[in-house]
Amino acid sequence: MEQILQQLLNGISLGAIYALIALGYTMVYGVLRFINFAHADVFMVGAFLAFFLGQNLPANSIASTILVLLAAMTGCALLGTLIERLAYRPLRSAPTLNVLITAIGVSLLLEYSGQLFLGANPRTFPPVYPSAQLTLGGVILSGNQLLVIGVTAALVLLLQLVIYQTKIGAAMRAVSLNPDAARLVGINVNAVIAFTFALGSALAGAGGVLYAINYPSIDPLMGLMPGLKAFVCAILGGIGNIPGAALGGLILGLVETFVGGSEASTWKDAVAFGLLILILLFRPAGLLGKPLPEKV
C-alpha cells in the first residue's frame, strides 16, 4: 500500500512537468493549428537560464528558487514571442506543412547553437533549492516533489484564471474557434497569438527549471525526450484542449512511474507510446478532445 502511494506521488510529480510542457503545445495548436516543435527547446533554454543565474545565487534557498523560476519564465516568454514573430508570423497564410518544417528548423537551430555556444557536455545544475524530505507514515514526500507539484498546481490555476476569467483569455478562445470572426470584432489576432506563445513558453521555462532541479544534469539536447513525452500528453488529452493536456501529463507520469517500478521497467517508454497508439485508436480526438468539425 505504502509503495503504491509512493509511486503515485512520484508519478504525479513527473506528470506535472510533462503537463507544464504539454500546455504550451496545446495552446499554440489551439490558436494556430500546428505543432510548435521548437517548444521543447524553449524548455531547454529555461533550464540554462536558471543554470547561469542560479550559479550566482545563494544555494539551498527558497528565494533563489523563486528568482530562478521567474527569470526562466520571463526569458522563455520573450524567446517564444521572438520565435513566433520571426519564424511563424511571416508564414501566416502559408500551408501548415511549411510552418511545421519551419518549426523543426527553429528547433534544430536552438539545439545546435546551444551545442555551439554552451558545449555539448552535460553540466551540473546548481543546488538552488534546499533538499529536504517529509516522511508521512512510510511515504516519503521529497522537497523536490513538493516544489514540482506546488508550482505546477499554482501555474495551472493561474492559467485557468487567465483563460476563463480575462478578456485576453476570451480572445484566445475566440481566435481558437474562428480567427476570421475574431478579426471582424476588432481583435488583433497577431497580438493574441503572440500572447499565447508568451504564456506557453513561460510554462515551458518553469518546466525546464523544475526538471533540472530534479535531474540536475543539463545539456542542449535535454528537451528532446521530455518534449516528445509532453507532445504525447497533449495528443493523449486531446490537442487544443487545456485540461486535456494537464490530464495527459498526469496519466503519462503515472504510467511511466508504475511501469518503471515494475519488472518491465525497461519498457516504460514503449508502454507510454503504446498507450498513445491505443487511446488514439479508440478516441482519435484524444481523451477530452471533441472531434473537430470540418473547417469551413
Binding site: R173, A174, L177, N178, D180, A181
Partner: peptide, 11 residues
Amino acid sequence: VPEGRMVFTNL
C-alpha cells in the same frame, strides 16, 4: 456581421 453569424459558440 458575417454570413452565418459566426458567434463564438464556445463563449
